[in-house]
Amino acid sequence: MSNVAITASTIPKASGWKLFLKTVIARAYPRIIGQQREKSWMFFDIFLPILSIAAYVFVYRAIGAPEEYIGFVVLGGAMTAFWLNVLWSMSSQLYWEKEQGNLALYIMAPNSMMAILLGMALGGMVATLLRALVILFIGGWIFQVQFMVADFWTLILVFFLTMTALYGLGMMSASLFLLLSREAWHLANLAQEPIYLISGFYFPVKNLGFWIALSASLIPLTLGLDAMRQLVFPSAAQFGFLNLHLEIIGLGILCVLFLIGARYLLHYMEKLAIQEGRLTESRR
């Protein structure tokens, strides 16, 4: 028996929840460490959102908007980082993995795909949180935004629920992208401006009318952003779409819905993609 075989046989094999946890950590690792190794993200991931924040801030200033709207734009602009991360690094990630030939390896390995998605979500969330905080800090400083947190723990709860539901949605849509080829890129690209519009990233979503805002609430950032604005800007309660408690309950329901949905959809889509031979195809 060779040395390699002896070493391999002495490594304890993880299984069950230990394997699940190890997979989560292994997939989250490159997301967090990657940004330490490639520092240029600081320029692109912070500078770009600040440019669009600045453009919208100056539009509000040109039309004489009250100062709280500047705060709404800065907070909304910071939250775009999470939406972009979910779109490009969660939903369409399995498509990229397919393009690079990793997807087949994921499927062959003895780990759970759910653990891989969870690792991607956790790693992406931590890395994006850092970006969003820097954007918020710089944007707030440049445009002199006054943040006054009314209830810190409720704010943390709202943020946690929003992220859980949002990344649950990302995990769910990742499984749909398993079936897609080059249209994946276009569909992810399409889900930017329309979502900024209906989720009220740059204005209170209440202004879209009740039914549109309610439909848009299926995207967790709609309720999450509205609730966070109510908690961070004292005057925002009058611009709020729903009562804060209702929004928290809504976010809780979305969390359960999307996480369970992700579990079932992933299982179903993986089976379908295998049956249709889509896991290793590459239609550029």
Partner: peptide
């Protein structure tokens, strides 16, 4: 549809921002 939704949405963001304030 793809070619029209994106530009119309980005215009609509500005239109709504404008109409809310004015």
């Amino acid at each position: 549809v793809y070619s029209l939704i994106k530009p119309l949405s980005s215009a609509a963001i500005l239109v709504i921002m404008y109409s809310v304030i004015t």
